[in-house]
Simulated assay, not measured.
Amino acid sequence: MDAAEDAYGQAIRDYYEGGEERFEIIERDDGFVAPSSGPATYFSEYDEWGADEQTALGHLQGSVLDVGCGAGRHALYAQRQGHDVTGIDISPGAVTVSRDRGVERVEQCDVAAVDEAFDSGTFETVLMLGVNFGLVGTAKTAPDVLGALATVTTDDGRIMAQSRDPHDTNDPYHREYHAFNRERGRLPGALRMRTRYKTYATPWFDYLLVSPSEMDDVLDTTVWTRTETWQGEGGLYTAMLEKH
């Protein structure tokens, strides 16, 4: 990702350097446009996180890979708990901010390429918090992404995967989009989107929201199984995935 495409990272950098919260604009492929929740979320502390994330973080073990680390909030927490942590993010701006905030190891890396960036069996815990299970992309790409994560984790490795149940909404725009997805053979919560900020715009990318049962379907052809689930608010939940 080059600098002109890093809308997300630039919003984080501006907030970190100046403290002024400006919002990214989320654009979906059906024409729906809305502001993001804002960069302050990426700097929030443990006491501000949902009960599902807090509970999941009580199950950290060994070396940790924080996928889509953003401004480093979860990586910094895991470091303070004494874990050896590596953060990855595709955004160069996010990588810079995470490093400046004290994440000891952080690299610009696509989660789909982790098996090329790290040795087999490097990590014992993978964090996909901040709804970052969505980074598996689509139901079709998910097995490859989850396979790459299986390669870089130990035999007893685990993933803490947060998602949002897309069906937990009464918003007609979202429900219409779910129907639009079904018509084209996609899961209801399969987002095709891009973000804009000032003069920056990301390329279009896929991001997947799933219910717990849909997560199980996505995991079906992988080595991962959902073994624990902790509910949050507003359709959020975090699942522990373990190898079978």
Rank of each mutant, 00 (worst) to 15 (best):
C69P: 06
E183P: 15
G62H: 04
F133H: 05
L187V: 11
R186V: 05
V67R: 01
V136K: 07
N170A: 13
V103A: 00
R196E: 06
T41K: 09
V145H: 00
L57H: 09
R73N: 01
E104T: 10
H83L: 01
D84Y: 07
D168I: 15
L236E: 07
E228W: 14
T55P: 10
Q108I: 10
G50K: 04
A161F: 00
G134P: 10
T96F: 11
L219D: 07
G38V: 03
V106F: 10
G19V: 00
A239M: 03
T86L: 11
Q231V: 15
I88P: 09
T221S: 12
A150V: 11
D168P: 12
R99G: 08
L219P: 13
G234A: 03
D110I: 12
E107H: 13
D110V: 06
S213C: 10
V152K: 08
A112W: 09
A148H: 01
I12Y: 02
A7Y: 11
G189Q: 08
F23I: 11
Y207Q: 15
D110C: 13
A56R: 03
A150R: 14
R73D: 07
M1Q: 06
Y77T: 01
A150D: 15
P212W: 02
K198E: 09
S44E: 01
C69V: 07
H74A: 12
L187C: 11
Q79H: 15
E20R: 13
G62E: 02
R158A: 06
T199W: 11
F205Q: 04
S37L: 13
T169C: 02
R194P: 06
A239F: 09
P188Q: 05
V103L: 04
T151F: 13
Y8A: 00
D84Q: 06
E116F: 15
S91D: 06
G50I: 04
S36T: 05
I25A: 11
L127I: 06
E242I: 12
E17N: 11
D100P: 12
Q79T: 12
T154N: 07
K243S: 12
D30I: 12
T222N: 04
G134Y: 03
T55Q: 08
E21H: 10
K198T: 15
A3N: 14
A161N: 05
T227K: 12
P35C: 01
E107F: 13
E20Y: 14
S213K: 05
Q81C: 15
V152I: 09
E214D: 14
P166C: 02
V33N: 01
F123A: 00
V131I: 15
L236A: 11
P212D: 01
H178S: 03
L149A: 02
D119G: 14
T221I: 09
K140G: 13
L191V: 12
A7G: 13
E5N: 14
G19P: 01
V67E: 00
A78Y: 00
G102H: 04
E45K: 13
I90D: 06
V152G: 03
